[in-house]
Amino acid sequence: MSFTQKGTRNSKKLKTTIAIIIFALIIIITILFFTLPLFSLLLRISPEDFIAAILDPDVNNAIMLSLITAAMATTIIVLLGTPIAYLNARYEYRGRNFVETLLDLPIVLPPSVAGLALLVLFGRRGLIGGFLNDIGITIIFTTFAVVLAQVFVAGPLYIRQAKTAFAMVDRVYENAARTLGAGPFVTFVKVTIPLAWTGLVSGVILGFARGIGEFGATIMVAGNLPGKTQTMPLAIYGMMQSDLTASIALSIVLIAMSCIILIIIRILSGRSS
């Protein structure tokens, strides 16, 4: 073996080693980038401070308000979203792609734009808000406005997921139910929904999670009123300067919720496959 050949082989080996090190570094940096900020939150607060902060009335109100509004928003989303998800999954009609694109729009739209749009529609001089104002109903800066913002932003996530879940149910089961004497509605309830169940549930959870985290649209259309419209994300923002511990405690609650949601979705998707 000549000297030059050996040299080439060594330098090849070196190149491979360097490549592996660079690759490993990129992986480590990526993982750290996404996890370190969250861990730093955990490290900034002692368990005692966390518990004390959670028991603070304002923090407590924010948690309760978030849970209640997100639950209401999710209920409305399921009631409004399920029929159109089924329609889009089962039937070809003119303009279906257009309708689907419109419904997907809030997913990619900046939340502040969504908030402004809702404000313009439901504000006191808005198209609907003006009319409601005449009969003595105000929507903006109320708890209902929080729900409205969550429905608008989170609804499309559920509709998308539910459509996929319905599309995966083989029509032959619906046909079999029909020939056995079930009308369209009973077939939907007894056959289609149970077969689409895991997909629908993960849609509900995704919608709920998005609702809980809603910030931009909410602050524009509902404001940041403690006990009335101040949900967890708004409270984190509002308290950041006056009471950082409270903000951190709320953030940790949200992180825990997100983890639970992700675990549930993983379990569900594992079961359906």
Partner: peptide
């Protein structure tokens, strides 16, 4: 007359048994 009112039995190719139900619930569905 819609399918649910025709009282016609249909054995589908691959049978189309409801996968979320037991044998008993499948047979008693009608």
């Amino acid at each position: 007359v819609p399918p649910e009112e025709r009282n016609i039995g249909y054995v589908f190719q691959n049978y189309a048994l409801f996968p979320h139900m037991t044998v008993f619930d499948n047979i008693s569905f009608g």
